[in-house]
Structures are given as C-alpha cells and as structure tokens.
C-alpha cells in the first residue's frame, strides 16, 4: 500500500448517527422474534395488498372462481340428468316386479285367507293400518285372537279379484266388492285405496 493510501486510511470517515445503529439492531432483533411466527403470518397475510396483486386482478380471480363453480355445477347437473334418464323408471321396475311375483304372492294370500277362514271368519279381512301407502307388514285378523303378519304387497286389480274368488269361492263383483267392508282389504292389497 502506497503512502497516499496509508494517509487516506488515516482519515476518519463520517460516522452515521447512533439512531441508525439502534434502528438496524432493533430490526435485526425484530426479525429474530418474528421468525417463529413467520409461517402463520404468511398464511394469514395472503391479501391483494401483501402479495402485490392489484384489486382489479383480485376481482378477476374471484370472478374466475365463481364462474368455474357454476360450470362445475352445470356439468354435474347435466351428467346427473343423462344418467337418470338412462336408468329405468321406478314404476316400470315395479311393474316388472309385479309381473314376475304375482303368482307367488297370490298363493301366499290364498294360504293366509284359508287360515283366517278356519278361525271362523267368512272372508279374510286385513286390518286398518291408517295409511294406504305403508309398505311394511300388516296384521291379518281383527279379533281378540292371535293375528298373523302378512307381507304388504301390491297386486293388480285383476290378480286381486282372482285371489279373492279363490279364497271365497264366490264370483267377484266390483260393485259389491268396493261398497262393502272388503274395501279395506283392497286398500291394503292395492295400497291405492281400492
């Protein structure tokens, strides 16, 4: 190092104000303290102001999210409609089930009717359930004696008439059938009120 450089080094540079030292050292300590909570602060501080996103851009982003939500909902509804239409309807399923099971159910009803007849009842009578749409089991027999539980089923009027004729040995007459108390049985069997 030359003589001039030594002379320059001997000079004294200006010293910054002590407040600068305080500010910098305080900032250093503050960064130390905030380090532990930095993650949560960052998580909470994701706002347009902090991340440098302009309000207009933020509005556009929110609008994009809303639009995307509507698109997803619309597509979901469309898919649901297509799938729903492709499936067989409930009534058609019911009709198919009735067609395949009518014979078996009629036989069961006939069997129960005969047991009721053995108890002294001239005609089998299903008890009131109070709700013609109930699909659960219903009690057979209204007397004080032990009742039987019969599966509640739905059969067509024609099949019900045949079953009734087999049970009673009489000719089925629609007028008499509906106007008498047997109407209850119809309602239970048909689940539609006769």
């Amino acid at each position: 190092m030359s003589e001039l450089e030594l002379r320059i080094r001997a000079l004294s540079l200006r010293t910054p104000d002590h407040s600068l030292d305080d500010r910098i050292l305080a900032a250093l300590r503050q960064s130390d303290v905030t380090q532990s909570t930095e993650l949560s602060t960052v998580e909470k501080a994701i706002t347009p102001d902090n991340v440098g996103v302009s309000p207009a851009l933020n509005t556009n982003r929110r609008g994009t999210v809303v639009t995307s939500g509507w698109i997803v909902a619309s597509v979901s509804m469309l898919i649901g409609t297509v799938v729903g239409n492709s499936l067989p309807s409930i009534s058609s399923l019911q009709a198919q089930r009735d067609a395949s099971m009518n014979a078996d159910k009629m036989a069961r009803i006939v069997g129960y009717g005969r047991r009721e007849s053995a108890n002294g009842s001239a005609e089998p009578r299903l008890s009131e359930t109070g709700d013609s749409t109930v699909t659960g089991n219903v009690r057979v027999g209204s007397g004080p004696g032990p009742s039987q539980i019969v599966e509640s089923i739905w059969i067509s009027p024609t099949a019900a008439a045949v079953a009734w004729e087999q049970q009673t040995g009489q000719i089925f007459n629609v007028v008499n059938h509906v106007s008498e108390r047997r109407f209850d049985m119809c309602r239970e069997c048909h689940r539609v009120g006769g």
Partner: peptide, 28 residues
C-alpha cells in the same frame, strides 16, 4: 463496516439523512 457502508450510501445520495435511510432500508 458501518462507516464504509454509510459513506458508500452518502456518495450516492449526497445527504446524510438519506444515506442513513438507505442503509436501514438495505438491512431491512
């Protein structure tokens, strides 16, 4: 290096208060 840092800032700003602000801002 506080004096040198301050002096470098002072050569740029020409003003001691601005130089102090610059040093503080840089460290921040």
């Amino acid at each position: 290096h506080r004096q040198s840092l301050f002096s470098v800032a002072l050569t740029v700003t020409g003003c001691s208060s601005m130089a102090e602000d610059a040093v503080q801002e840089a460290f921040a």
